[in-house]
Amino acid sequence: MPETELIAARAISRRFGDRLALAPTDFDLRAGETVALIGPNGAGKSTLLAILAGALQPTSGTVSAQARVGWVPQRAALYRRLTVRENLDLFRRLEGSGDVDALLDEFSLPGDVVASALSVGNRQRLNVAISLLGSPEALLLDEPTGSLDPEQRVRLWSDLESLPERGGAICFVTQHDDELPRADRVLELRDGRLVA
């Protein structure tokens, strides 16, 4: 039985002016797998993830998604003057589905605190929680643990690791070698090209 491709990208590339951020690249994310994307800064990892997420238009190539896709950008994407609950509720309404109370419980987030008052760790957890609204089957995470201490990293991964087990998939960018064992596949990007 063939593995289900939740996201399939063909020959996607992206230019920013004269600079080639991502050379034409093929990428598949299959159900049940966890993929790690590694590479030096400026290699094109965030660009690839943003294109896969539909947040950035590729200069060329196509992306087809057979599943609901969640995206966790590297820098927290939330409204700092809204409370945690208001952020979740707004994006729930925009997504059209999601359980705010369940996410607050699952991520142990204080619902009535304004997002700007959250610790860095909680802000990142809220960033991830927002991405889980709409019940995504494929989750794209751009350095989700970059600014977290070891304990917070473990806690965050424990919130996410069940997704592939439920038939979903995770693709994450990381700079931490100790997170690579979580991945079924490790892909390396250099100068906008997949090298491994």
Binding site: A55, L56, W71, P73, A76, A77, Y79, F91, L94, I130
Partner: peptide, 13 residues
Amino acid sequence: DENVIGRLARGLV
């Protein structure tokens, strides 16, 4: 500035 525009661009708004 809030970095939210990427989220919104994904078909939400």
